[in-house]
Simulated scan of single mutants.
Amino acid sequence: MTLPEPVTQPEPAAVTDRLPDAALVRRPARVRLLWLLVVVVVLAALMVASVALGSRSVSWGDVWVALGGAEGSLEQAAVTKRIPRTLLAVVVGAALGLAGGVMQGVTRNPLADPGILGVNMGASLSVVTAVAFFGLTSPTGYVWVAMAGAAASAVFVYAIGSLGRGRATPLKLALAGAVTSAAFASLVSAVILPRNDISGSFRLWQIGGVGGASYERIGQILPFVAVGFAVCLLSARALNSLALGDELAAGLGERVAVIRATAALGAVVLCGAATAVAGPIGFVGLVVPHACRLLVGVDHRWLLPFSALVGAALLTAADVVGRVVARPEDIEVGIVTALIGAPFFIHIVRRQKVRDL
């Protein structure tokens, strides 16, 4: 007598459709470590390329001599100026990539991004307003004001996305963020255009870029970036619980509201610091976490550090591309990341099921 084969119940379609492709595959530790090595090597190569490539051709000999502090020729002087620009691209890219990964984890929204949700533009509006009407001149003050604007914008967008029937769905948040970003961008232009004394300095800053970097500017944001990194990375394990759903996370002993507030605070600090020094650079926080999930899966203990490294690599590569394709002029990294991120955003939207949006 043969026993009938047990019948397994398939997972509900509503659940499996919401799982990202990367969640269906468990990444072994050795695979993750291999990808970590690859990403670190790529980032190092991009940093060397960022120092060597630009409007002026620089030999590798001049690069090594300039790294020692020499400025005996124009080539070596160019390398000396590119070093802080490269470091700023790494810091800002890492901050935006990590902030995007945290925002997607906090909201469980695949469309979450500091640019799409209006966080970066809120930080920009607060900085421009403080400079134009309150005479703000301190670079450290820029960071505090930018963080306040980023936080206020995040709360505003989430409140708008929560209106009406149902919860704050990914599409509602994306639409609320897009409308808020457009409105804030118009307000930024309205504040800057009548002010000839500040319009020149803020014109390129509005686009988002790392040109004009200096060690002093990097040093001013490093404490804030370090705090944001620490808060976000320490929230990784709790974000794994949050990904299971609020009720299950609460059943596991997690304080859901505290997790969300703490992780979101870390992301806001990173966005505010990055925007204060480099302007509103978009789409890095959207593209990077999705790419990292394909490499290391959805475990935030791996995903968040990888998002920081890949974000640094992406922004450094974008800066190199912007300097090379339009010699001797520069294309700001905000334009390059938009060209990369906008099609990716459309692709993510098209992949989502209508009922999930």
Rank of each mutant, 00 (worst) to 15 (best):
V310N: 02
V277L: 12
A267F: 08
E71D: 11
G69V: 10
P139K: 09
P4E: 10
A338N: 11
V41R: 03
G251C: 03
Q9P: 02
V38I: 14
E75V: 11
R327Y: 01
A190Y: 12
A150Y: 07
G279Y: 04
V320I: 15
R30F: 07
A267G: 07
A276W: 04
P194K: 11
T8L: 14
R237Y: 10
A146T: 06
I335Y: 12
R350P: 06
L19V: 06
A66F: 13
V128F: 01
H290Y: 13
G61S: 11
A66T: 14
V106R: 05
R26N: 08
S199T: 12
V90C: 02
G118S: 10
E332N: 06
A338K: 10
V269E: 10
A213Y: 00
S124L: 04
V119M: 09
A70C: 00
G161S: 01
S181T: 15
G61Y: 06
A250H: 07
M1A: 03
Y142G: 00
G212M: 04
R323K: 13
C292D: 13
V269F: 07
S55M: 00
G166D: 04
L309K: 10
E216A: 12
A168G: 06
F184M: 14
T80P: 00
E329H: 09
G101N: 05
D62M: 02
R260W: 12
L315N: 00
M103I: 05
D62H: 06
R30H: 11
V90N: 01
V188T: 04
C271H: 02
G115K: 01
T86L: 03
A78D: 04
T262H: 10
I281C: 05
T16G: 14
V41I: 12
V188H: 00
A66S: 15
I116Y: 01
F224V: 08
F306G: 11
F184A: 13
G72C: 02
A338G: 15
D197L: 13
A94P: 04
L163S: 13
R18T: 15
L244I: 05
V210R: 11
G149Q: 02
G219F: 12
A70Q: 09
W205K: 10
G164D: 05
N196W: 06
R18C: 09
F344A: 05
V268W: 04
V296Y: 10
V90L: 13
I331F: 00
R165G: 12
L46W: 06
R260I: 10
G285Q: 09
A154S: 15
P10W: 03
G285E: 06
I207D: 02
V256E: 11
V324N: 05
V349P: 01
T16P: 03
R26H: 09
A45P: 03
G209M: 02
V51W: 02
E5G: 04
L37N: 08
T169A: 13
L357M: 15
V336R: 03
T129N: 07
L88A: 07
F229Y: 07
S241P: 01
D319V: 04
W64E: 10
G161V: 01
L96D: 05
T137S: 15
L24E: 14
I207K: 04
G322R: 00
A151Y: 11
V39T: 08
A326G: 03
E11P: 01
